[in-house]
Amino acid sequence: MSDADGGRRPPAFGLPGDWFDAGEGQALIRRIGALSGPRVLVAVAGAPGSGKSTLAEALVARLQDAVLVPMDGFHLDDRVLSARGLLPRKGAVETFDAEGFAALAARLAQPAAEVVFPLFDRSRELAIAGAGVVAPDHRIVVLEGNYLLLDAAPWRRVRYDLRVLLDVPEAELRRRLAARWQGLGKDTARIEAHLANDLANARRVIAGSSGADVTLVVQ
């Protein structure tokens, strides 16, 4: 990917712009492509702001017969969160339908199955049922989300063929997340509130995730 001046522009997840062209990037693509079976599940996990969504999208774009399934479609609705006093903690592990996600992952593991799943609409801050489809000929399913590798029920029940974890220092996460919320027009007070929540969730991911087959360290 090049910018207007013809230079290399790093992708949003902080790895060099040519990361997929050689070395670690090519090794990861080859490793995923070599996974055997009619349907394989690849988990891409990391803290908020780690770049997992961007990495997962880039992988799917470079793999044949691959599809992306984000975890965010299992956000509980704001009305449910309000009733439970959890709206300020939206994005925390307890604000997701974890059992629903685990059930989806079990369905996704079935060979040649068509599976319909929900997608999260960030412009409206809500999940839309039936908005995504995994087709029977999608052999590689890349799932991405904060808590995929969390060593707690029901997350640990989900079986993946490959587990990828992004490791980003908290200072860098803070910088990226502050820029994200600033870009969405939030004022200073709201940015600080969002950062407190995001970084609390990031610490949960960092401390509680386990079982990664590949850990990508991003500075």
Rank of each mutant, 00 (worst) to 15 (best):
D121V: 08
G23I: 02
A56D: 06
K52F: 04
V67N: 12
K90I: 10
H138Y: 05
R122Y: 03
A131R: 13
P118W: 03
A127V: 05
L165A: 10
A27Q: 14
A98Q: 05
Q26K: 13
L86N: 04
D21A: 14
V217D: 07
I32A: 07
A135D: 12
S210E: 04
I128R: 15
Q110M: 11
G185E: 04
D65G: 12
E192S: 05
A56K: 09
I206R: 10
D72N: 08
A47P: 02
A212P: 02
M1A: 14
A22Q: 07
L59A: 08
A92W: 06
G85S: 12
R30N: 13
L59I: 08
L149E: 04
V134R: 15
P10F: 03
L195S: 02
E57K: 15
E99K: 13
K90P: 09
R39F: 06
V218A: 00
D77L: 12
D21L: 12
L149C: 02
R8L: 14
V69R: 05
G130R: 13
Y147C: 05
P38W: 10
G208I: 01
G14K: 01
D77F: 10
A153L: 09
A22E: 07
P48Y: 05
L195V: 02
T188P: 04
D65T: 13
Q219T: 11
L162F: 02
I191Q: 01
A58F: 01
E144P: 04
A135Y: 11
P16K: 04
I140V: 15
R139I: 10
S36R: 15
G51P: 08
I206S: 02
V69D: 06
P118T: 07
Y147W: 07
V217M: 04
A202L: 00
S50I: 00
V141A: 11
L28T: 02
A153N: 09
R30D: 15
A112D: 14
V42L: 09
T95Y: 09
L143N: 06
G49T: 01
L166S: 01
R9A: 11
R84D: 13
